[in-house]
């Protein structure tokens, strides 16, 4: 599904990702943990092609294609989804319009017909219910005035509607209470079908109780410094990142 080889990337003048390797096969769930400022969000942005994030070295293939040569929207249309750590508001554009454009852009790229309004609405309502958002969220402006938790659930709703091949969840659990966490986890689990893959970026092992990962990686200073199974997350939970041999402040951001 995704192969990252010796990736180096910088933001502005600062190199953040420094030699990262990762292999994700279809159906796998990889958790990425690591201290604040390790480069977790940066990795998500680099993979999705955000402007300003420059690859200095390395290769990334996504289902056989050279991901790094594709535009942001082409990567998205190829099935790469990023659930944002801080979802942005788009005032006046309803969730419904936004998602309709989005779903249809993806369909068009796959050579499928656009969904009719009725078909779309049915799908949207189902997704809304699945993440426990009232239906009137479809009419509200994208993330406009949503609480932190609502924004995160809204991201998962989009994930459910778009059915991506690879979803990167950037701290979709932060700021959520246990019930909301359960909702987010259920949303993700409902998409696990043995073919779709996930990168779950999190600070806490808590989320991984609900979304069981196949692999856990520790990202520090732009590299994966340790990989293992679910037990690695529990170790981190118990001992923090102090073993990385450096002071880590502001962990609970």
């Amino acid at each position: 599904m995704l192969t990252i080889k010796d990736l180096h990337a910088r933001v502005e003048e600062k190199t953040i990702i420094k030699g990262l390797n990762l292999e994700i096969k279809p159906g796998e769930v990889h958790a990425i943990m690591g201290p604040n400022g390790a480069g977790k969000s940066t990795l998500g942005y680099v993979l999705s092609g955000r402007e300003g994030y420059e690859v200095e070295q390395g290769e990334v293939t996504f289902n056989g294609a050279n991901l790094l040569e594709m535009e942001v929207e082409e990567r998205a249309q190829a099935g790469l989804f990023l659930a944002f750590q801080y979802p942005v508001e788009i005032p006046g554009v309803s969730n419904m319009e936004f998602m309709k454009e989005s779903v249809n852009a993806m369909r068009k790229a796959r050579g499928e017909d656009e969904l009719s309004s009725a078909e779309f609405l049915k799908k949207a309502k189902a997704a809304c219910k699945q993440v426990n958002l009232p239906l009137d969220f479809l009419k509200r402006g994208v993330n406009e005035g949503f609480s932190g938790g609502e924004k995160k659930r809204n991201e998962i709703m989009q994930l459910i509607m778009l059915e991506p091949k690879l979803a990167i969840l950037d701290e979709s659990d932060s700021g959520l209470d246990v019930d909301a966490l359960q909702v987010v986890a259920n949303g993700v689990n409902s998409q696990r079908d043995g073919k779709r893959s996930f990168i779950v970026v999190t600070h806490y092992q808590r989320l991984l109780d609900f979304i069981e990962p196949d692999y856990v990686h520790i990202l520090a200073q732009g590299k994966i410094v340790k990989s293992g199974g679910p037990e690695l997350a529990k170790e981190v939970e118990a001992s923090g990142y102090a073993w990385l041999g450096q002071a880590q402040e502001g962990e609970e951001a």
Binding site: S48, R50, E51, G52, E71, V72, E73, A76, Q77, F81, L82, F84, P87, V88, E89, I90, P91, G92, V93, E97, F98, M99, E101, S102, A105, M106, A109, G141, V142, Q158, L162
Partner: peptide, 26 residues
């Protein structure tokens, strides 16, 4: 904002469609 544009593109929209949608919302 770059953030808005990036969100739209990450959801599969080309930049022109994204800007016109944001402007229409405004």
């Amino acid at each position: 904002s770059d953030d808005q544009l990036f969100l739209c593109q990450q959801r599969g929209l080309d930049p022109e469609k994204a800007v016109s949608m944001i402007v229409n919302g405004f």
